[in-house]
Design a protein around this nucleic acid. Sequence first.
DNA 1: ATTACTAATCATCGAGTAA
DNA 2: TTTACTCGATGATTAGTAA
Lengths: 232, 232
Amino acid sequence: MPKPVLWFTLYCLAEMGAYGRGIQISTTSLAEKLELSQQSASRHLIELEHLGLIERHITARGELIQITNKGVEELRRVHLGLNTVLEKPTPTFLTFEGEVFSGLGEGAYYISLRGYRRQIVKKLGFDPYLGTLNLKLTSKIDIQTRKELDVYLGIVLEGFENETRSYGPAKCFKALINNAVEGAVVTAFRTHYDESVLEVIAPVYLRTRLNLKDGDKVQVKVFILRSPEFSA
Amino acid sequence: MPKPVLWFTLYCLAEMGAYGRGIQISTTSLAEKLELSQQSASRHLIELEHLGLIERHITARGELIQITNKGVEELRRVHLGLNTVLEKPTPTFLTFEGEVFSGLGEGAYYISLRGYRRQIVKKLGFDPYLGTLNLKLTSKIDIQTRKELDVYLGIVLEGFENETRSYGPAKCFKALINNAVEGAVVTAFRTHYDESVLEVIAPVYLRTRLNLKDGDKVQVKVFILRSPEFSA
DNA sequence: ATTACTAATCATCGAGTAA
DNA sequence: TTTACTCGATGATTAGTAA
């Protein structure tokens, strides 16, 4: 979590449209909105950039500011917290629809590692098929929803290291694929690769079990744990 | 708007349950959550109390903290802002159901004042019947929703003064009563009386027009202006 | 215009401690 | 145990100004 003052500046930027389309603004006008000096606005932007929460392109007449995925995550975290506090119903599951595509087989590699595999058996309750089903999310709303996963509590697979290298932690959610097979969705922890992809694992080979080929549509129901995580 | 640091402390308190039931907590344990010193936690609580955002009852072993309506409003304001930013659909109207009851006739008094009446004609487009229909909200969800009105933009009736005294500003929302009559809901601006009451005005005498007597249920559809207000 | 440096100012914080 | 004071240290903000 960034410091409250910085979070607030980030929030202000978002209100002005820096999420998505991005905005062009001068530090002076930002300062007015924040009720701070031009110098402080400038410093805040520098610090937010260093934290990786915004991207900037400084031009002659102001700067182009865009909130990064990491930045949106910080906003989303508080949003979820407020949802809970203000008694907005928190979903118990999220549904996605994606198209099957072939990855490069890294999924299979990671799952085959004993460090991960043993945790999957223990924490998810099944011995995974050694491969992942990659789903490309196409609708805008699904991609949007996908990002919400980042701030929900999931089942954590701890990072570990073997002789060769070290492996980071990952976050899983139990899931139901095509309303038929129980499995899980796996997301790397705090690594922002492609936000429009869902990686699914299951105890069985999903392609044969569900008779899938590239381009087929698949529905996934992802189960959320109650409260949003709240930590740095 | 309180300072960002204080807002954040307020938010933390809310997360711990200080909204609604209230919490018993020591400044030391609060300090841990905030990652601040006990002294700072203490100071924050003092300041929040001075701002009227929380109420405290200090006991031998910690203090009882309760977030006030004003405090919740501050949280709600940011929540709504985040809704907009994160592209959650903002409602265009809110619906309520309440029971008719007889007030003390102050409604009629206020509306009869030229200072308000002229603004109603001009800004709401009708000449109001000189009285209000009081609705008591009974369901918890309606009372909850009623509070949301505080942070939405409405049509503002400016305050004024006459020979006798001065009158504060009020906020209105156009409304549809029982899906039949067009009128408006009036809320005093930043005065927190009874949060479970809705005051309705209309160009006609609603009790005869809709054939209402005390205790009858009435549906009200309240129309919201686009964006939430964002100011002190 | 801009952004952002340095230096001076001012607010906030935490240590120590009283009640 | 508590809360919350004083006060010196820390850190954030603004003024002035360079680029």
